[in-house]
Design a protein around this nucleic acid. Structure first.
Length: 407
DNA sequence: AATGCGGGGTG
DNA sequence: CACCCAGCATT
């Protein structure tokens, strides 16, 4: 615990709280706490936990909160909403019910289980951590924050969540949700998008947390952030701790938290080539390890600097020849368009159809020898590889084209 | 401290 | 459309 950087924050002055400053003293000599004015921290915890006991959400990972269950749920919930996670969580635990089964899994099976969930390095890191647990902890999940945070893919938030929920350790799990709640609670105007301010919110959480029920406290803050204290359309007056919430008391809910804007995503244009062989199967390839959507499968994508219009198919033939050493026959007309938005990129994709000439039908062998992992698949059987959502959109556009053509 | 990394939900 | 969401690793 002594090496925990979160203890470096000593004292925090919160200005303009009902006309005076409130002082949070987070050093070894906690004293003079005026956070709640006439209220107390104990009152706050009791009111919050009473509300939580009566109104908590029934979530799958709350049914049997083993360390493994909590861990899987917390990794999935990183930057991902509860409703999205639930079906993935159920299926993942069915497929990989124990830490050992996760440690021993084939990477391709892991990717398939994570297909469509995004941030795919999460599941690879989780397997690395599972292997660490099996080897270095004899299969027993480490039980303290300081040990847990050293596992791959587990940072300050997730380590605190697991330590508090599964092992009852009094560490605040502070994510964007919690920072919003704490910001409104105490009227803190520090920009929550700046990493230098994060230790402030962790320190506040560690001070406020109910030491006897840390896991429930952390989850109560989450539930609060997803109900009455949402980012948009909040209902602060209905909050169980409205009487403690500075932003509500002063009618400034919308002013908190302060959060600077993100940069706009960069725009890219691609041509997607659906290359069919004699069996109507389509060429796909696995993306490189260090690329966006690493290890996932797509049809060949050819980037070009900006939007273009005519004569593209001649370029595609040349580019395919250069990249794959064969010349497909490319249809002149695009069969569809796809737009896909990532957090930091936007892709505009034009889809072209092509087929392999008989004399080139065996070129796949040469492709694999160039360490480009390739395969031929039916657009109606997507079970054999993990595809990112953008490829799912391309498959859909292709099937729509086939359907239209047959009518 | 800034950037890369997915995808879906919401007003 | 813009913004948000149970963040972390890397540089």
């Amino acid at each position: 615990m002594t090496n925990d950087s979160r203890e470096e924050v000593q004292a925090i002055v919160i200005e303009d709280w009902l006309g005076k400053s409130a002082i949070l003293d987070l050093g070894p000599n906690i004293q003079g706490v005026q956070v709640w004015g006439p209220q107390t921290n104990a009152n706050f915890q009791a009111d919050l936990l009473t509300w939580y006991d009566q109104n908590k959400r029934q979530l799958p990972w709350r049914m049997d909160p083993t360390p493994y269950h909590v861990w899987v749920s917390e990794i999935m919930l990183q930057q991902t909403q509860v409703d999205t996670v639930i079906p993935y969580y159920q299926h993942f635990l069915q497929r990989f019910p124990t830490i050992e089964s996760l440690a021993e899994a084939q990477e391709a099976d892991l990717m398939k289980a994570w297909e469509g969930l995004g941030y795919y390095s999460r599941v690879r890191n989780m397997q690395t951590a599972a292997q660490t647990v099996v080897k270095e902890f004899a299969g027993q999940f480490p039980q303290t924050y300081d040990e847990i945070i050293q596992l791959k893919g587990i940072g300050p938030y997730t380590a605190a969540a697991i330590a508090s929920i599964a092992f009852n350790e009094a560490k605040a799990a502070v994510d964007g949700n919690a920072m919003r709640v704490y910001s409104r609670l105490l009227g803190i105007s520090a920009d929550i998008a700046k990493s230098k301010h994060h230790k402030l919110f962790f320190a506040i959480g560690d001070y406020l947390i109910a030491k006897d029920r840390p896991g429930d406290f952390n989850q109560a803050i989450m539930d609060l952030g997803s109900s009455f204290e949402t980012a948009k359309a909040a209902m602060p007056l209905l909050s169980p701790v409205a009487d403690y919430t500075l932003a509500t008391l002063t009618g400034q809910t919308e002013a908190f938290p302060v959060k600077s804007k993100k940069k706009k995503p960069k725009v890219y244009y691609y041509d997607a080539l659906i290359i069919k062989n004699q069996q109507d199967r389509v060429l796909i390839q696995q993306r490189d390890q260090d690329q966006l959507l690493a290890k996932l499968w797509t049809v060949p994508l050819f980037s070009h600097p900006e939007k273009k219009d005519q004569e593209v198919w001649t370029n595609l033939v040349a580019e395919t020849k250069a990249k794959y050493d064969f010349s497909p026959v490319v249809a002149k007309q695009a069969i569809g368009q796809v737009k896909h938005v990532f957090s930091h990129q936007v892709w505009y994709i034009t889809i072209y159809l092509a087929y392999v000439k008989a004399e080139d039908a065996n070129f796949i062998r040469d492709l694999d020898q160039k360490s480009t992992k390739s395969d031929w698949v039916s657009a109606y059987d997507l079970s054999r590889h993990a595809y990112p959502t953008v490829q799912m959109k391309i498959w859909q556009a292709y099937r729509d084209y086939l359907t239209d053509k047959n009518q």
